[in-house]
Write a protein that binds this DNA or RNA. Structure first.
Lengths: 133, 133
DNA sequence: ATTATATATTTCAATTATTGAAATATATAA
DNA sequence: TTATATATTTCAATAATTGAAATATATAAT
């Protein structure tokens, strides 16, 4: 029984992964930026900017890679670097107006009814997942 | 209202992503293979092997990259290439005994009770997500 | 059968992304 | 001050990915 248990979990895991990806694909399709770039912009929107170190942790890459990734988004005009006054070693990546607009637009592809549906499901899924992870 | 709606969805999306990642991190921590490699092995386990083209689609990479990715797993001894008899253009990547063992071991880090809990939650989450995605 | 077209994978050179280590700038403690 | 620590950037070396051509097989048309 333990054996089949594990197979069920593997299937469940992969299915969730697949569904999340399908949603992300849908959200990002037709955009000029990569999925990672768009998710980053969304993160910045939600968190009012991200420190370079937070991005490194979130993307599981080295600080050097963060610089390169952010250089691109900056060159495209979607983010700007802001030095923190409390600790001037820290750089925070913040959305520009263009970046803000980009993020807003992402969700316009869904009709309002769909958005409400999605919101409800996401809330429930998160509650469920909180009990285990 | 539509505005805050979207923010809630963004937060929900990112939270799920984070939780999935945390689970994957946990599952793959201490392993010598990358997360992508391990997930691939799991996919092969569940699907009794994967065609090169399926891997390309699943990982969103070009056929050339698939060859390179599979070369590595093959060199490590975790998979082998099997030509399909029905259509000899097709190559199926199949787990070796070593690959099978690798996948089995992944789940040993969780105690049985935790596994049952996870299974239950994954099932419910998938049901929920099926209604929207 | 032969030829033409299509599909699956591999090969490989060019490009792009990432690492790891040194450099820069700032902060904190002794 | 001086020493040590932390955050980010720089940059050369390495690794991963692309895109296009090559190879092998399949399918359809004549």
């Amino acid at each position: 029984m333990a054996e089949s248990n594990i197979e069920v979990i593997m299937r469940g895991m992969l299915e969730i992964q697949q569904k999340s990806r399908r949603f992300a694909d849908l959200l990002c399709e037709g955009e000029s930026l990569s999925q990672t770039q768009l998710i980053l912009l969304i993160q910045m929107k939600i968190n009012n900017g991200l420190k370079a170190s937070q991005i490194a942790e979130f993307l599981s890459v080295t600080p050097g890679a963060v610089t390169s990734i952010c250089d691109k988004l900056e060159k495209l005009g979607h983010i700007k670097r802001v030095r923190e006054n409390e600790d001037r070693r820290v750089v925070k990546m913040v959305l520009t107006d263009s970046g803000e607009k980009k993020v807003e637009e992402l969700f316009l592809k869904f009709p309002q009814g769909k958005l409400e549906e999605i919101e409800k499901v996401l809330l429930q899924v998160n509650q469920l997942m909180s009990t285990v992870f």
